[in-house]
């Protein structure tokens, strides 16, 4: 895990400059989740005060869920890409 200075030439640009279709699909999933949250905040904020999960309101559950889902989607992407 070290930054070695063995190579003196510049790092080379190269490889596939297109985003992966799988990544774009997962991106779409997250955009839907994020847009759903934003819609609730902007249009029906009263729903975010509901407390369906262990006394914690929907605003916190959805917010933390968005953070968790970003991680889950990222790991899914990494695993699926590694498997190809």
């Amino acid at each position: 895990m070290a930054a070695s200075g063995k190579r003196d030439g510049p790092p080379q640009a190269g490889g596939d400059a297109a985003a992966s279709p799988l990544g774009l699909c997962l991106f779409g999933v997250y955009v839907l989740l994020y847009a759903g949250f934003m819609a609730l905040v902007l249009v029906r904020p009263d729903l975010l005060a509901l407390r369906p999960f262990g006394g914690v309101n929907l605003a916190i559950v959805y917010g933390m869920g968005l953070i968790a889902s970003a991680f889950v989607l990222a790991v899914t992407y990494m695993l699926l890409r590694s498997g190809r």
Partner: peptide
């Protein structure tokens, strides 16, 4: 304040799924 946390992290989804690999392939410095 937590809305900033949510927004800041969401930006990383764009970075990972749309930008990360192409930008590595296209750039140098």
């Amino acid at each position: 304040g937590f809305l900033y946390s949510i927004g800041f992290l969401a930006g990383w989804v764009v970075a990972l799924f749309v930008i990360a690999e192409p930008i590595k392939a296209l750039g140098k410095f």
